[in-house]
């Protein structure tokens, strides 16, 4: 049976844990606000670029001169999964959810006899994938603080990806990240980034006037497609940053509440014990007095 002193010690330690989780929750809330604004600020660019690429792509007929980033290699044997997670834990199921989705898709593809390789952004995803698919990680980078990532970082990764693609290392690339819907809901999402997926309903822009291009459509496409990869990665990182903070906030909120419950229970136990000790002492004194 725990002594009174030990109980008191436990209550104090849970209290200080609660203080820490409370502080982390508040930090996450502040960072979330910023990350959310950043994610929203980045959307117009990505959406517009996507639209332009789609409308261009629907116009260009696939031929041998079409950029490979659009037409693909003609195979889908080797898949590259770009799995974007974070470097730090303590964010609830944030990293686990992304890794789980990647794992499920990878297993499905492997079953079909395809090869799956991984390109990890973030330590946490790498840890899981390295254990499950040893030797399949072609590269892993550590983004550090997701909120502070700049477009230049995403651009560098995209360039690396495009180079690997041109070198024939893989045929299809998918990006895995967590789409930020709200503080409570973050969807792990898969998106094909190479070759560019043209939505089926992509039609030429409305209006009868023909659009003039300078240089020609293919020239513009060749310039836009690598950029599109960078932008999609950048957007995913922004979404991830917001999702991570949202997830962290929820997790820390739960932790704080759990600590509160624990403290309440321990306090009751402590008070009972104290009462019992006092009663015992009284009984001893009284029976001692009676014996005299």
């Amino acid at each position: 049976m725990a002594s009174l002193k030990a109980l008191k010690g436990r209550i104090d330690s849970v209290k200080s844990t609660q203080k820490i989780t409370k502080a982390m929750q508040m930090v996450a809330a502040a960072k979330l606000k910023r990350a959310q604004n950043a994610a929203e600020a980045g959307r117009p660019y990505a959406e517009r670029l996507e639209k332009v690429v789609a409308s261009l792509a629907s116009k260009v007929t696939i031929s041998s001169t079409t950029p490979k980033l659009l037409s693909g290699t003609g195979k889908d044997q080797v898949h590259l999964f770009v799995v974007a997670t974070s470097d730090k834990g303590l964010a609830g199921a944030f990293n686990a959810n992304i890794a789980r989705l990647a794992r499920r898709r990878a297993d499905a593809l492997i079953k079909q006899g395809k090869t799956v390789k991984f390109y990890c952004i973030g330590k946490k995803g790498r840890a899981v994938l390295n254990r499950l698919y040893p030797g399949q990680i072609v590269k892993s980078v550590e983004p550090g603080d997701l909120g502070k990532l700049s477009f230049a970082d995403a651009h560098a990764w995209a360039e690396d990806l495009v180079e690997r693609f041109d070198a024939g290392e893989f045929d299809v690339a998918h990006l895995f990240y967590s789409h930020f819907q709200s503080v409570l809901v973050q969807d792990p999402t898969q998106q094909q980034i190479i070759p560019v997926k043209v939505p089926e309903d992509a039609t030429a822009p409305q209006g009868t006037a023909a659009i003039e291009y300078e240089p020609d459509e293919e020239g513009i496409l060749a310039d836009l497609l690598p950029r599109n990869v960078a932008v999609q990665i950048f957007r995913a990182m922004r979404e991830n940053a917001a999702s991570e903070q949202g997830s962290k906030m929820t997790a820390m909120d739960n932790a704080t509440r759990n600590a509160g419950d624990l403290i309440k229970r321990l306090n009751i136990e402590y008070n009972r014990k104290r009462q019992a000790a006092i009663t015992t002492e009284l009984v001893e004194i009284i029976s001692g007095a009676e014996a005299l």
């Binding site: 006037a209 023909a210 003039e212």
Partner: peptide, 19 residues
């Protein structure tokens, strides 16, 4: 500043796309 030369855009410009 277009890749193939600068161009000015006023209201009512014809649809156009350039790097």
């Amino acid at each position: 500043p277009g890749t193939e030369g600068d161009f000015g855009v006023l209201a009512g410009h014809a649809p156009f796309m350039a790097t």
